[in-house]
Simulated scan of single mutants.
Amino acid sequence: MGAARHDRLVWTDDDYHHPPDWLATLNADYESHGPTSEVPYFIGRDPLSVLLEPLYASAGSLGLYLGNQIWGGAVIFNRNDIDGVAFLDELRRTVSDDGLLMEYLEVTTVSRTRMVPIGGTVREAIERPVRWTQILRWHFPSAIAGTLAISLVVLTGAIIAPLPTAAVLTVLHLAINEVLGVRRWTAVLAYPAVFVFVPLLFYALIRRTFVWGGRRYRWRGKFDVTVVKNQR
């Protein structure tokens, strides 16, 4: 961002397909809405990531879309839309660009979903919710508290009344996919996914380190980050 020559900036990731008109479309979105973000839909490439797909949609993608929140994989804004000096100073002292950018920039999230492949190994599938939970913990603690509370309520229902809960979760996640413009059979996995997702959340909260981009981080506070070692 500091090296960019122009005032209109686009942040993205390299882990999903960018169609030829992607940049032009985002630029047109900015002209209509101002700062704009798209919505990710995470597609699993290993059994655990596939199982968790519906909960990534409901706990992640849907919240970004309905709440006009930023996904760092596709966001456009002008340099003067944020306090760039303060933002870059804090970015150099923390881990999550998405989490920090959410604190500095208000966006309109457009109804356009990008398929993002994730995982590949069980280890990678475990690291993602750990990283996601740590981002919420340090940037939006009330959000992670709410996620835990709702997840525990749903898990309790899944144990006490399995058939009704399974039916409700399946229909709900099919509806969520419709809202996001996605047709994925994995919505039927929402019920069994709850039994994995909730323990993963608690595991993520007690983990002292996590791996991201080939590096292992120890995140003790929002601006207290240590690179433990390179994983590559």
Score class of each variant (00 low, 15 high):
G2Q: 13
A3I: 13
A4I: 13
R5N: 15
R5S: 15
R8F: 12
D14K: 09
H17A: 14
P19R: 04
P20M: 06
L23P: 08
A24P: 07
A24F: 15
N27I: 14
D29V: 08
E31F: 01
E38F: 02
E38C: 06
I43P: 00
D46C: 02
L51S: 02
L51G: 00
L51E: 01
L51D: 01
L52E: 04
L52H: 11
E53T: 13
A57Y: 00
A57R: 02
S58C: 06
A59R: 13
A59P: 11
A59N: 14
G60W: 08
L62W: 09
L62N: 04
L64P: 00
L64T: 04
Y65H: 05
Q69I: 08
I70D: 05
G72C: 08
V75L: 02
I76K: 07
N78Q: 13
D81N: 10
G84K: 11
L88N: 15
L88V: 13
E90M: 12
E90V: 08
D98A: 15
L101F: 01
E103L: 13
L105I: 02
V107P: 01
T108K: 12
T109D: 00
R112S: 10
T113R: 08
V116D: 01
I118F: 02
G119L: 04
G120A: 09
E127Q: 15
R128M: 08
R131P: 02
T133V: 09
T133G: 00
R137A: 04
W138A: 06
H139L: 13
I144D: 01
A149C: 14
L152N: 08
V153F: 13
T156R: 07
G157V: 03
A158S: 11
A158D: 01
P164R: 10
P164G: 14
T165V: 04
V171M: 05
L172Q: 12
L174H: 03
I176A: 08
V179Y: 03
V179I: 10
L180N: 03
G181M: 04
W185H: 09
A187L: 14
V188D: 00
A190R: 00
A190W: 03
V198A: 07
V198S: 04
P199V: 10
A204Y: 03
L205H: 04
I206G: 02
T209R: 06
G213A: 10
G214F: 10
R215I: 05
R215P: 01
R216K: 12
Y217T: 11
W219C: 07
G221R: 12
F223P: 02
F223I: 06
D224E: 14
V225S: 02
T226G: 09
Q231N: 13
